[in-house]
Design a protein around this nucleic acid. Sequence first.
DNA 1: GGCCAGGACTCAA
DNA 2: TTGAGTCATGGC
Length: 300
Amino acid sequence: MEIKRIIKTVKIKQPANFSFNRCLEFLNRGYAECLYMVSEHAVKRMIRLTSGFALIEVSADMQYLLIRIDKAEITHSDTKECYDYVIDWFDLDRDISGFYQLLEKYAETENFPKKYYGLRLIGIVDLFEALCWCVIGQQINLNFAHKIKTRLVHKYGNKILAGDQAYYAFPAPQALLNATPEELALMQFSRQKINYIHNIATVFCANELNKSSLLTLSKTEQMDQMLAIKGVGPWTANYVSMKSLRNMNCITYGDTGLSSALHKHFNTAKKPDDNTINKIFRPFAGWESYLNFYLWRSLG
DNA sequence: GGCCAGGACTCAA
DNA sequence: TTGAGTCATGGC
């Protein structure tokens, strides 16, 4: 039976200091990503809405971002959710001119605004996905991390077919709660990662943690709630705070990528201590997350 | 072959 | 509260 689908396009006015191509370059920076598909001028992914799943394609013209929504039925609230999703994902609701002014003040970073012009702090909108992704990526190289994430998503995630292309959404907490340790071990998850993911899924299924209520709390309270989960340490809490909760004052202390970027641009030790890091970040108060993100980008 | 990856935990002292 | 050991595997 053929299912009739509806297509609708929504426009978002592009903010100042924004480059869709720079953001696409970031999304397409060379890792085997299973949750979205980047083509030359667009990115497509499946997202979870309150009323079900939708396939969206984001592209741009001179002035607007264009969201093409593909879903069996599209209500006003579906449209609004897609709109909000893209704003959150690309961090469009933020004036980053202050950040660029700060970058230009210092010799170490003065070329960043040109080199990465218009790059936004690309987020992970789904809080559960963000936490799980951190656990997956802990202490293993990113290529391998993407490999096992793909196995997880293909087995437990939701899937839709569009033409001959399959699109996946990250598994729901319940799906990962139901996954057995044996199954995950077969996908080459370590016992620790299996436990940690199970812990995160448990907390989400019990509704002890959700994004909307976290967003009503202070950053310290948010961090405490995340750190209470065994498997979530300071690095993960800061990463998620930056990429999903959109706090602007996060630093991923101890991060290997951040360390090498600081070594490269600020001539620090190969693994600078927290004091050194704080000293460098202090002038960027309020933009630490963006500096952290741009420093990561400067390695690629 | 050895060392380190977008860490975090346990356990000993 | 600090440091060593552990995890599992890929890539260099």
